[in-house]
Design a protein around this nucleic acid. Structure first.
Lengths: 210, 210, 210, 210
DNA sequence: TATGAATGAGCATTCATTCAT
DNA sequence: CATGAATGAATGCTCATTCAT
């Protein structure tokens, strides 16, 4: 097998084609159903060529999964340009969150499947979750410090639960055909999220408690 | 193949052993990894016997899935003995909801996987979701009618989202090792749920709106 | 895989057919060249059936080798009916020795090849050699005790060398086409062997030494 | 492919490196296990370069085998400086014989293996044996003519057998781990050889016969 | 000459399913 | 009803060889 760092331009092109083909194939047919042959055909290379770049189907999937996870990280960052209004920031975050998960729903679920068997993939999966959980927890903590959210909530557990709500909805929405338009969905998710953490326009938590 | 209704006592015992063995095997190793051989060995019957009762591996899984779904329905019904306090009822429902999904998390996810390929399983999966969604929506609608919850919320979509929060947490908690004890989890899920729907002790919604 | 002891009569027949077919195939084409398919075709069973009885090609070869080694042991025992005349006994032994190795020359050489890689086969190979070496050494020691052979010879090393002469000749004769008829070969091998150990009609060694 | 005679200095170096690498690889891992890739890596050239110099793996092996055979011829010639004492000459020859075979035991056995399939290699193998057999036969014939060895022995067949004894011992000694030090081994081989051909200090054969 | 990417025939192995007993 | 031997399509992977650069 040729390692990634030792590639010529031509090799890189072929390798990229295989990763792209693999990603499409996995997304369309599911991990188990994908044949190395399918991937090769899609990438326009012969069967043997696959093994010039990857040791196995698992290795390819690892590569695909890593790419997906990387994209999700990048795509879900709420830019600094978003207004300081906490509610608006939550809404923006939820929109990106929903989109990021929706775009990769099937592959992420596949990653979960595969992670059961493959040690290396488990790490990737946990890293993925951790990044999203931490972001959510950080955001909540900040609001708590500003007196805008219920200070009694455990930030991490709350982030896990509310993040899960968004993530799960992405799946139900796109994979299971639950009917809703994005605007409505994001608005409702945001309303539920904001209310759940007790987001207040003023700093009422400092006086009252739960 | 012998159909279920034409079984002798002995046949029923063998068949039940296969279903039980299949359920355990699927839960432990995942759909694809399970060999008919494994199931037969577990059930203590010979390889050929399997086909006396089932047409295929899929057929067995369908049977297992149906059993699981049935159990989940039964197990998650909030008994009439629970006090009328809405918050307490939500908490009781969430506890049962969480337990029901946690107990069968892997099999349900397997069902989702398999449903991608198998038409018949898709129906089962949708039925499963629908029952839970409908229950949640009914509950919310009742609270709205009583003026105890935000009447502006779409009952179904809200139920999908908040139900998803619980369902997803069951998965994260049990399959992915997120650390939490049941009491804490149920309490937080309930608090978030209640706040999200704007559950009020009094009937404040009638005067205010969102 | 079905273990040997759990076979029905039918299974035993199939298994035996595979071993026989494998033996023929190995003998004709050499280890590496033999395809599982060839063996199956020869045995008149389908490809998959092979794996009902053997885990791999190596496993089959192990079985074949063990059978060959067993036969060689049996076939090379000089019966008790052979006259006590030491020279005649050596000749009889050499004849059987030559025949035993000649009959299985290719398979034994294959075993040597394969033993390089397979730990389990190495044991079999060493056992095979050891039996023949020990027999030769015992015979020599007896003659030495009777004063009929040079007592200065190390029995084991001498047996290794002279046994090797016969074994090697079997190979050269049959595999490499060295021309000779069996009678001539056995007579010459015996003459060389007898002279080499200083076999004397009388008990001259007791008086002389080397 | 570039033929040997048309090489530049650089080409010769690369080619030699491949032959040397191939010899080491064959000796260590056996014919079938050697990958062209291994050889190239060892020689420090890229995969494609191999085919600049050789048509195939077999061609490389042929080259290696020829080199080995050449060395064995050279290394085993008893120099003219060795004293005329026949026993001492036999001992010297056996020492060189043993060393020559021991040094190349694995490669020679590989050649025998390969010769089964490759016509061209068969010639090489037969040539190798023939040289050693002829030398042994010549030596014996000379001794017979001088009345120092049993004139009744067929020189060629005797040489095949006794030569085989030495050759085989080299294999058993080095490849199969039979324990012996060289001095002891050579002395015993020589004693057995000398006695077997009836080597006498005086010219007793002229009067007696066997 | 050297390189290394591409090729594809070839092969071992798995496993759901069938069927004779 | 139960058994377990037989089936064979399906598929991942290897590696000698070719060839464009």
């Amino acid at each position: 097998m040729i390692v990634k760092s030792e590639l010529t331009a031509r090799g890189r092109r072929t390798r990229d084609a295989l990763v792209r083909a693999g990603r499409d194939a996995f997304d369309e047919h599911g991990y188990e159903s994908v044949r190395i042959d399918d991937v090769c055909a899609r990438a326009g290379v012969s069967h043997g060529t696959f093994y010039t770049y990857f040791d196995s189907k698992e290795a390819l999937f690892g590569e695909v999964a890593a790419a997906v996870v990387g994209e999700m990280f990048t795509a879900s960052v709420v830019g600094p340009g978003v207004p300081g209004d906490p509610y608006a920031r939550i809404e923006a975050a939820n929109r990106l969150y929903l989109r990021a998960w929706a775009a990769n729903s099937r592959l992420v679920r596949m990653l979960e499947q595969a992670a059961t068997a493959e040690e290396s993939l488990r790490g990737l999966l946990l890293e993925l979750r951790e990044v999203f959980v931490r972001r959510g927890a950080e955001g909540l903590r900040r609001l708590q410090e500003q007196g805008l959210a219920d200070p009694a909530l455990d930030p991490r557990l709350t982030a896990v639960m509310l993040g899960g709500m968004v993530e799960h909805f992405a799946h139900v929405w796109l994979d299971l055909g639950e009917r809703a338009d994005e605007r409505t969905a994001v608005e409702l998710l945001t309303k539920l999220w904001a209310r759940a953490i007790g987001l207040t326009p003023a700093s009422s938590w400092q006086q009252e408690g739960v």
